[in-house]
Design a protein around this nucleic acid. Structure first.
Length: 271
DNA sequence: CCGGACGCCTGTCGGC
DNA sequence: TGCCGACAGGCGTCCG
């Protein structure tokens, strides 16, 4: 499910309700996520107050006075703030019970999500160390991307989905950004002019910013922390629009497979 | 180092 | 209606 806008939407939805709130219990119903939920998680969190919720790439960082919980939503994960007595449903794997009769509930049908606990700097954690820049930061710019792309033969779509190049760009927004930039998704990354890479940087920033403003993209069942869906789906130009007319030129949108993932593009606008 | 394939899971959808 | 394969928004790991 979640790409950067959905993770950010989740963060913005939950943090106002969690800041300075005490975790009084942690109920783990199924530890079998992508990696096992740490056995010590409950003991580590109980009695601690949430000091901040940050985001790095698609990871949510729950900051406590003594340590940090790193949480990834994987492909199908969600976090919702609920009344503590809300009946549990299938795939509700973890409850973080709060002092105000509320609970933060983690649901993840496919169990590709994960939860980690560290007392050290989370940015030094194995999963976060070495990640590329945040796409909305200034350090992600044309000079940076051109330097990274030099001599690379990989398809530009795979390239921008590589978290060592830039984080947070998943399958939906990669297709959308390449459409906005007018670049064919299969073009070799090292064979794109700096001017066009510059346009791609702008397109990535724009599509992610717009998607965050719309509350993310709800394709199937994504909802933010408040249970509301995202509305960016209405603004998608090519994703999931195979055989429909290109909104810009009217040509038929094509679907192809690139790096085991579906890719959507306009054969006329994207070169 | 690079590029590509694989696998972890469950749910859904389309075709027969 | 039921079965079965393909596919789904991620990403660490392994192999050549």
């Amino acid at each position: 499910m979640p790409e950067l806008p959905e993770v950010e939407t989740t963060r913005r939805g939950i943090f106002p309700h969690l800041i300075s709130t005490k975790i009084i219990d942690v109920i783990v119903r199924d530890r079998r996520l992508r990696w096992p939920v740490p056995a010590k998680l409950g003991a580590a969190l109980k009695g601690q107050y949430v000091e901040a919720i940050d985001r790095r790439a698609k990871y949510l960082l729950f900051r406590f006075q003594q340590g940090c919980m790193i949480l990834h939503l994987g492909m199908s994960g969600s976090l919702r703030l609920l009344a503590a007595d809300t009946p549990v449903e299938k795939h509700d794997h973890i409850d973080f019970v709060l002092e105000n009769h509320q609970c933060l509930r983690f649901r993840d049908p496919r169990r590709f999500g994960s939860v980690h606990w560290t007392k050290a700097d989370p940015y030094r954690h194995k999963l976060l160390d070495g990640l590329g820049p945040e796409p909305l930061n200034e350090e992600f710019n044309a000079e940076y991307l051109a330097g990274k792309a030099a001599h690379r033969k990989v398809a530009i779509k795979n390239f921008i989905m590589n978290s060592h190049v830039v984080v947070g760009v998943g399958n939906i927004y990669a297709s959308e950004a390449l459409f906005l930039a007018g670049i064919h998704p299969a073009r070799a990354a090292g064979r794109i002019s700096k001017l066009r890479l510059s346009r791609l940087v702008s397109a990535i920033k724009q599509v992610l910013t717009d998607a965050i403003a719309a509350g993310g993209t709800t394709l199937r069942d994504f909802t933010g922390g408040d249970g509301k869906p995202g509305y960016f789906k209405q603004e998608l130009n090519v994703y999931n629009r195979t055989s429909e007319p290109c909104p810009s030129c009217g040509a038929v949108i094509r679907q192809a497979s690139l790096g085991q993932r579906s890719t959507f593009y306009c054969p006329h606008c994207q070169r």
